[in-house]
Nucleic acid binder design. Structure first.
Length: 877
RNA sequence: GCGAAAGUGGCGGAAUUGGCAGACGCACCAGACUUAGGAUCUGGCGGGUAAAACCGUGAGGGUUCGAGUCCCUCCUUUCGCACCA
C-alpha cells in the first residue's frame, strides 16, 4: 500500500494533477466514518409502528447459527436481503428488516468440550463477533428487534407453545427408535451417524434403541401442509416439489388378510386394490411384529431374518437402500385373500419398509416392477388381472403380454380374472372394490403419508428444557404456565458421556408436583433446535414483549413475510416446521395468516475453484479478510455481480478487485466533477426534452439504467445485470465528463424555478443530475460509498429514504423513426429505423430487396428491423 | 431408475416477448503517462481472412424471412427423490 503516500497523480494525457487525499477511493476511511455515524443513529433502520399508514414490507433472511464467524454464504444471503430492504425503503415502504441468532445447538457443546468453556459463553462470544461483522458490512438490520434463541426471553415461549400444544393434544410422548451409540451411551442425531458408525467412535456401530420421546403431531396437518403448497406461488417450484415428496401423500385402501388356520389378521396398504385378484403372495417387512410370531419355532428362518435385518440396516446407513438386491424368504404360513378366498404364501422381503403404510403388502407381480423382480427370483406366480382395453384376452393366454409393463393405470384399462369385478375399468374398480371391502368389514379407504410426527426430544444440554414433570403419583404433569420459564441451569458438567446432561443436576431434576405437591422429576431432555427457528420471525415483530410470544395485532400487520431469503438446504425441515407452527398459531387465534412466507427465494451456494468452501479443502475466503482488503461495498457488490443470485457463485478474488476498481471509478468521477445542485432542479433535468443529440443519449441511458434496476428488483432479481447496467452508465458518464459528448449542447432545456424565473439548462446540468441518479442507483448495493457521495454532492437528505426515481418508459426507449415502404406505387407498410442511421439509404435497400418485395405481394409486413446501413430482417404478422 | 434445472469465448456471465450473439466484468495483448506500476488512461480481444467472405451458443434433425431462444431425438453436468406398495 505504498502508493497511499502519493499526493500527485497523473492522468492519461500526461498532465499532473494534485490530488487531495480524499480524492482517492479509500474504502476503509469512508466506511469506518459512516459506520461510526450510523452506530450513533440506532433508529436509522427502525420500522414504523404497526399503526403506520405506509405499506409494509417484511424482508427476512434466514438467521444464522452463531458458529464463530460469518462465511461467504452468509454475506451473499444478506447482501441480497439488504439490497432489497434498502430498495423497498426507497420505494417508500415501511420495512421490517430484522436479524437474530439460532443460538441453541450441538456445536456449542462440542466447542465447550474442546475449549473448556461453557456453551453459553462460547455462543454469546460468537454472536458478538458475528454482529460486529454484520455491522461492519453495513447491513440495515434493526438491532432493536434482535432475537437470540438461547436466552430465556425467547425460549420461555418455546416452552409456552409446548404447553399449549400439549393441551391441544399436539404434543405427546411415546416410545420411538433412536440412534444410540453404546460407546457414548447417548442418542445421536442422524447427522452424527457416519457410515453407520458413531462420529466419535468410528469403529462402533450405531444401534437402534427404543426410547420415550416427545413428539409434535405434524401429521395432523399433513393434508393442509400439502394442499396449501398449491397457493405458494411465490415459492420456487423445486421447494414445493421437495415438500410434496416429503409429505408423500398416497390414497389407497387397507385390506385385512386372515392368517390361514387362525383368527389373526395381517393388514396391508395398497393404492391399487383393483389388482388384488393378482395378489399371489403377502410380503412383510423384516421388522414386522408378525414375522417373529410366524417363525418363532424355526431357528433356521430366525437366522435368515437376522441376516436380512442386519443387511438392511447396513444398506440404510450407507444410503444404498435402493440398490440392495431384493431378498426374502417364505415364512411357511399362508394368508387368505378376502376377495377370492385364495390361500397365498406369506413371505418376508427386504424391500418392504416398516415405516410406510402398514409394513405389509399384497404382492402383485404382474403389475408392479418390484414385486415382479421378487417373484421372478423366487418363482412366485405372476397373474395378469388388468389389460389395456384394446388387448385381446387371448393374447394373454398366448403369453404375448409381458408383465409388468402394461399401461394398467390408464382409465382405458380393463379388469380380467377378477371375479365379479372383471370387465370394469381400473378407476371404477378401485371404488367398487374399496366399497366391497368396507361392506364386508375387512378393509377401508385410507390415506397414508410419508411424513412422520416430529420427534423433538434431544438428550442434550444446550437447548430449551421441555417443561414437563413426572410425578410419582400423578404421572406426566405439565409445568404451570406461571412457572415459566424453566431455566436452563448454567455450569452444567457436559464432559461426562451418557444420557441427558440435565439429568445429572439434582437441583434441576428434583421438583414439586404442581398437582399433588409430592416429589416429581423434571424432564431432562431438551428441544430440537428446529423448534427455535419455527417461529422466530414472529418474535421480531415485538421482540421485547414480556406477556406473550407475540402481539397479535402487530404480527397481523407484518405477516405474512413478504420475502424470505436463504439457502435451499432448508427447503424441507425448517420450512415445513415453520409452516406447521404457523397453522397451529392460527388455530390458537394468535395469527390470521395460514402461511408464514409469501415469497421465498433460495440463493445458490458460494463455491471456490469449483468446490464448496470448506476448511478441509482449504478454499475458504473470510469476509473479514475481504472487508479489510477491499471494503464492505466491494465485497457486497461482488457477491451480487458475479452471478445471478439463484445460481452458484464461484468466488474469484480478482473479480472483487474489478468491482473495487469500478467503485473507485465512481468515486473519482463524482469527487472530481460533482457540484452542488438544487434538488428541485436535478430531479427534473433528466426528464427535459433534450432533442436527439448526445444529451438525449445520456438522458436515455439514465432511464434505461433505472429501468433495468427497477425491473430486476421487481421481477427476476438478476442483480448482476443491474450492476452491469450501472457500470455501463458510469462508462458513458466518463465519456461525457471528458468532453466527448455535448458539443454544441450548451443550452437545450428550460426549467421554471420556484420564483417563476426561467432557467436555461445545458449539458453540464444534465451531467450533474446524472451523478445524483448514479448515486441513487448504487444506494441499495453499496451503502457506504453512496452515502459518502450523496453528501459530497451537497445532498442533505437521508439517502435511505430518498425516493427511488421512477423511470420514464418513453425516455428509456431507443429512438426509432418510421419510413413508409412503397410497393407498386402504393404505401403498403412502414419500416422502423433507429434515428440517425442514413434513412434514405435504408429505404433504398429495403425496396431493392427482392425477397421482401416478393413477400409483400402476399403478406403484409408490419415492421422491418434495420441495422445501421444494413437490412436484416422482416417481421410478418 | 424417476423428477427438475442447466450446457454460450480462456473464465464469471449478458442477450426479459424468436430479431445486430458474446453486454458488463475478470484474465490476456498493445500503447500512453511514468524512476517505477499490482495505479490510471486509450485501444484490442469467439474462430477465420491481408481485408472481406464465411463459420460459430453440447450433438443431430425440424419449424420460420430469421432460432442461443420454439418443436423432436440424443449426449453431458448439477441438484432433488430414490424400493413409499
Amino acid at each position: 500500500m505504498s502508493h497511499q503516500e502519493k499526493t500527485v497523480v497523473l492522468d492519461g494525457r500526461g498532465t499532473e494533477q494534485p490530488r487531495e487525499p480524499e480524492q482517492r477511493y479509500d474504502p476503509q476511511s469512508i466506511e469506518l466514518r459512516w459506520h461510526e455515524r450510523w452506530s450513533q443513529q440506532p433508529e436509522l433502520y427502525h420500522a414504523e409502528p404497526a399503526t403506520s399508514q405506509s405499506k409494509k414490507y417484511y424482508v427476512l433472511e434466514m438467521l444464522p447459527y452463531p458458529s464463530g464467524a460469518l462465511h461467504m454464504g452468509h454475506v451473499r444471503n444478506y447482501s441480497i436481503g439488504d439490497a432489497l430492504a434498502r430498495f423497498m425503503w426507497m420505494k417508500g415502504y415501511n420495512v421490517l428488516h430484522p436479524m437474530g441468532w439460532d443460538a441453541f445447538g450441538l456445536p456449542a457443546e462440542n466447542a465447550a468440550l474442546k475449549n473448556k468453556t461453557q456453551p453459553r459463553e462460547w455462543t454469546l462470544h460468537n454472536i458478538a463477533n458475528m454482529k460486529r461483522q454484520m455491522q461492519r458490512l453495513g447491513f440495515s438490520y434493526d438491532w432493536n428487534t434482535e432475537v437470540t434463541t438461547c436466552l430465556p426471553d425467547y425460549y420461555r415461549w418455546n416452552q409456552w407453545f409446548f404447553l399449549k400444544f400439549y393441551e391441544r393434544g399436539l404434543a405427546y410422548r411415546r416410545k420411538s427408535k433412536v440412534n444410540w451409540c453404546p460407546e457414548c451411551a447417548t442418542v445421536l442425531a442422524n447427522e452424527q451417524v457416519v457410515n453407520g458408525c458413531c462420529w466419535r467412535h468410528e469403529e462402533t456401530l450405531v444401534e437402534q434403541r427404543d426410547l420415550e420421546q416427545w413428539f409434535l403431531r405434524i401429521t395432523e396437518y399433513a393434508d393442509e401442509l400439502l394442499r396449501d403448497l398449491e397457493n405458494l406461488e411465490g415459492w420456487p417450484e423445486k421447494v414445493r416439489t421437495m415438500q410434496r415428496n416429503w409429505i408423500g401423500r398416497s390414497e389407497g385402501a387397507q385390506v385385512e388378510f386372515k392368517l390361514a388356520g387362525s383368527d389373526e389378521k395381517i393388514t396391508v396398504f395398497t393404492t391399487r386394490i383393483d389388482t388384488i385378484f393378482g395378489a399371489t403372495s403377502i410380503q412383510l417387512a423384516p421388522e414386522h411384529p408378525f414375522v417373529g410370531k410366524l417363525i418363532a419355532d424355526d431357528p433356521a428362518r430366525l437366522t435368515q431374518l437376522d441376516e436380512l435385518i442386519a443387511e438392511q440396516r447396513r444398506a440404510r446407513e450407507l444410503g444404498e437402500l435402493g440398490e440392495t438386491e431384493k431378498r426374502g424368504f417364505f415364512t411357511g404360513a399362508y394368508a387368505i385373500n378376502p376377495f377370492n378366498h385364495e390361500k397365498i404364501p406369506i413371505w418376508v422381503a427386504n424391500y418392504i419398509l416398516m415405516g410406510y403404510g402398514t409394513g405389509a403388502i399384497m404382492s402383485v407381480p404382474a403389475h408392479d416392477e418390484r414385486d415382479y423382480e421378487f417373484a421372478n427370483k423366487y418363482g412366485i406366480e405372476v397373474r395378469i388381472v388388468i389389460l389395456p382395453r384394446q388387448t385381446e384376452p387371448a393374447a394373454v393366454a398366448a403369453g404375448a403380454v409381458e408383465p409388468p409393463t402394461l399401461p394398467y393405470t390408464e382409465m382405458e384399462s380393463l379388469l380380467i380374472n377378477s371375479g365379479e369385478f372383471s370387465g370394469l375399468g381400473n378407476q371404477e374398480a378401485i371404488q367398487k372394490m374399496t366399497r366391497y371391502a368396507e361392506e364386508h368389514g375387512f378393509g377401508r379407504a385410507r390415506v397414508t403419508y410419508r411424513l412422520r410426527d416430529w420427534g423433538i426430544s434431544r438428550q442434550r444440554y444446550w437447548g430449551t428444557p421441555i417443561p414437563m414433570l413426572y410425578c410419582d403419583g400423578c404421572g406426566i404433569v405439565p409445568v404451570p404456565e406461571s412457572e415459566l420459564p424453566v431455566l436452563l441451569p448454567e455450569h452444567v458438567d457436559i464432559t461426562q458421556q451418557g444420557g441427558s446432561p440435565l439429568g445429572r443436576v439434582p437441583e434441576f431434576v428434583n421438583a414439586k408436583c404442581p398437582k399433588c405437591g409430592g416429589h416429581a422429576r423434571r424432564e431432562t431432555d431438551t428441544m430440537d433446535t428446529f423448534v427455535d427457528s419455527s417461529w422466530y420471525f414472529y418474535r421480531y415483530t415485538d421482540a421485547k414483549l414480556a406477556t406473550a410470544p407475540i402481539d397479535t395485532a402487530v404480527a397481523g400487520y407484518w405477516f405474512p413475510i413478504d420475502q424470505y431469503i436463504g439457502g435451499v438446504e432448508h427447503a424441507i425441515l425448517h420450512l415445513i416446521y415453520s409452516r406447521f407452527w404457523t397453522k397451529i398459531m392460527r388455530d390458537m387465534g394468535l395469527v390470521k395468516n395460514s402461511e408464514p412466507v409469501e415469497r421465498l427465494f433460495t440463493q445458490g451456494m458460494v463455491i471456490r475453484n469449483g468446490a464448496k468452501m470448506s476448511k478441509s479443502k482449504g478454499n475458504v475466503v473470510s469476509p473479514d479478510e475481504m472487508v479489510a482488503r477491499y471494503g464492505a461495498d466491494s465485497t457486497r457488490v461482488y457477491a451480487l455481480f458475479a452471478a445471478p443470485p439463484d445460481r452458484d457463485l464461484d468466488w474469484q478474488e480478482n473479480g472483487v478487485e474489478g468491482v473495487s476498481r469500478f467503485l473507485a471509478r465512481v468515486h473519482r468521477l463524482i469527487i472530481k466533477n460533482g457540484k452542488p445542485m438544487a434538488s428541485s432542479e436535478w430531479k427534473q433535468v433528466a426528464s427535459l426534452p433534450w432533442g436527439t443529440g448526445s444529451a438525449r443519449d445520456l438522458q436515455r441511458k439514465i432511464h434505461q439504467t433505472l429501468r433495468r434496476i427497477t425491473q430486476d428488483f421487481d421481477g427476476r432479481w438478476h442483480f448482476n445485470t443491474s450492476i452491469a447496467a450501472i457500470m455501463e452508465f458510469v462508462n458513458e458518464l466518463y465519456l461525457a465528463a471528458e468532453g466527448k459528448l455535448y458539443e454544441g449542447e450548451k443550452q437545450v432545456g428550460e426549467l421554471t424555478d420556484l420564483d417563476g424565473r426561467v432557467m436555461q439548462l445545458g449539458g453540464e446540468d444534465l451531467r450533474q443530475s446524472a451523478y445524483r441518479y448514479l448515486v441513487l442507483m448504487l444506494a441499495p448495493f453499496a451503502p457506504y460509498l453512496s452515502s459518502e457521495l450523496w453528501e459530497k454532492l451537497g445532498e442533505r437528505s437521508q439517502l435511505l429514504r430518498e425516493p427511488w426515481p421512477r423511470f420514464n418508459p418513453e425516455l428509456a426507449r431507443e429512438e426509432e423513426i418510421e419510413l413508409p415502404i412503397q410497393i407498386n406505387g402504393k404505401n403498403r407498410s412502414r419500416i422502423t429505423v433507429p434515428a440517425g442511421t442514413g434513412d434514405e439509404e435504408v429505404r433504398e435497400r429495403a425496396l431493392a430487396d427482392e425477397k421482401i418485395a416478393a413477400l409483400l405481394g402476399s403478406k403484409v409486413p408490419l415492421k422491418v428491423i434495420v441495422v445501421p446501413g444494413k437490412l436484416v430482417n422482416l417481421v410478418v404478422r
